[in-house]
Amino acid sequence: MSSSSLWSTVFTPAEAPYVVEAGEVRIFLMVEEGDWFAGVVRDKEQRSPAIRKNADPAPETTEWQRIGSEADLPEIHLAPAYPDRALVVRPKVSYALIPGERVQFFVGVPVWIRVAGPSDLTLFQVSTSSLSNTWFGLPTEGELAYAMRTRARRDVKRLGLDPLQVVCSVRIKNQSKEMITFERICIRPRFLSLYEDSRHGLWANESSMIVRSAQEASRVAYARKAPAHLNHPHAWIKGAEEATGTHFLRALGGGKGLFNE
């Protein structure tokens, strides 16, 4: 089954049990004595997105959880979601921007699967890949985030169309008089919308930042619409309105180029 049906499949009690495979995770859904039960199994194997009906039983070690009655949940569906915390992306290669330079990067964010019932009620959410933790801030105060080491791409085609990652576009303009080096990017999902294109690729709204000085806080603007190249995209998530002074990117480089909140 192609990735297209991952987000469009409707799960009904009649065809249960199901297994949803995506990345490192397998979600088992079954109906027993009129109740839906869900079990999540995670391992190191990477699986392409797939859904199997009347699937084989789950491993014996699976921990099951009742998620609702058959009567209350006549249908269950899946929806793509962002991680539940901010994501700090550390490019494998740091990027230096000379004064006046304007660049656009593309970063792939691992998608989460939101299992939902009628009226889009969220039953639970799981990540499709294991992300380690990181700390964004000072040791005395800051924010717990997920860490991801990846390659920030200048050409979106080189990122590849992975159905389990959301492509985030980041535009940066260095308006300062000094060179700025980016070593990590903090992506805050609450400000991001999520769109699905006709080829079932997942995209975030564009974000852009103008750096005026290495010491000054940089304001980030989030586009309120889908990326221009998408034709009639389906909007899965509408990002929150940005707060005043919201920062999105923090850069570190050679003792300068530190953007504070």
């Binding site: 550390r90 294991s130 380690s132 933790n133 990181t134 700390w135 860490a147 990590r184």
Partner: peptide
């Protein structure tokens, strides 16, 4: 690096 509970920063 492999341990999910271990922060990669600090």
């Amino acid at each position: 690096d492999q341990n999910p509970w271990c922060l990669d920063e600090p």
